[in-house]
Design a protein around this nucleic acid. Structure first.
Lengths: 191, 191
DNA sequence: GTCTATATTCTGATAGAC
DNA sequence: GTCTATCAGAATATAGAC
């Protein structure tokens, strides 16, 4: 029996979102044209507008996809026994992406920076990329017994990771993120 | 006597570079069109090409302008008596920009991120924005007696400042950069 | 050196056939 | 639901008069 329309639609929409997420990371959101997207997702150009009314809608879908990626990661991290182990594992996962970060930047940070400079509606949404991870970090630091300093420690950890990611991308050297990652893991262990 | 051509040319070129630097910070390099530039600098559109053959040439001029800004800042910092005082003053100057950073990001960091995503020639040049400040920091840490760890300490300081700037811009909250700045100053003092 | 007018290309978006 | 053809506007860049 033939695929019905809706199933095909879902398949195409998913392909479009996947392609948008990947292309926005590799070559930037703004630089990614609807033609690039259509080609990568194997969907005819004009048809993209059946799934997304505007390019901003695609940006929103990218942000939501990145948010859900963190939720999946969080589900895994929360399986670990201690807050310390969870925070260290978080840093570890970032470090393992060092090679990709050196090429295209942090998937969240570089997108956030781009949406902020773009201005408009999406700039307001950009901090959604950081909000959930930082809420999660803050809970871990609180559970570690640093309830009062949790917000500061979170800012410190997230800033270091984001800044190190930018340096890593700028100098195209994965070793930078690995060095900062090692330091941050020791710092967490010693808390 | 009337202004001769060359003097006028210099004036216009300077106006164009100033406008480019400011607009690239406020609304992004890519988003800034040659028409925006021409209007801001009070130069007719087509005439921009007398001074810059391509838009990339304008990007290069922006990078060079930012580099020279650091040189001016460095000249001032090097007048301070101790490496510690110089590093603290550097952090202080960044902190004083917190309100602007909250609106438009770090003048160097946000430009760097944008040029990196843009790809092309300018992406290779983007780390010039960090190279000189980081060389300078490394010399300060060395002079402080941390010759072996100077590169790590520099990476740590620069990452924290850049990451905190991104958080500050994303959440539109100058207090974030101020909090990280205070922490970093204490950290330097305690070295 | 300076400026106007315009060429060229590309991009987001739409109209309408199937 | 799907796709082709195309529009309208903008952006970079150039040609050539003054």
């Amino acid at each position: 029996m033939a695929k019905d329309g809706k199933a095909a639609a879902r398949g195409k929409q998913e392909r479009l979102v996947s392609a948008a997420v990947e292309l926005a990371h590799r070559q930037g959101y703004r630089k990614t044209t609807l033609a690039d997207l259509a080609e990568a997702a194997q969907v005819p150009l004009g048809n993209v507008y059946y799934y997304f009314k505007t390019k901003d809608d695609i940006g929103e879908a990218i942000v939501q996809h990145r948010e859900s990626e963190f939720e999946a990661m969080r589900a895994h991290l929360d399986g670990l026994p201690t807050p310390k182990a969870r925070l260290v594992a978080f840093v570890d996962m970032t470090m393992r992406n060092a090679a990709t970060v050196a090429k295209h930047g942090c998937p969240m940070g570089s997108l956030c920076a781009e949406l902020l400079k773009d201005g408009g509606q999406l700039a307001e949404r950009s901090n959604a990329l950081f909000a959930k991870p930082m809420d999660w970090m803050e809970r871990q630091f609180s559970a570690l017994g640093y309830a009062d300093a949790a917000a500061d420690l979170t800012l410190q950890l997230q800033s270091s990771l984001q800044g190190a990611s930018l340096m890593t991308q700028s100098f195209r050297d994965p070793a930078l993120l690995e060095r900062e990652g090692r330091r941050l893991k020791s710092w967490i262990e010693a808390l």
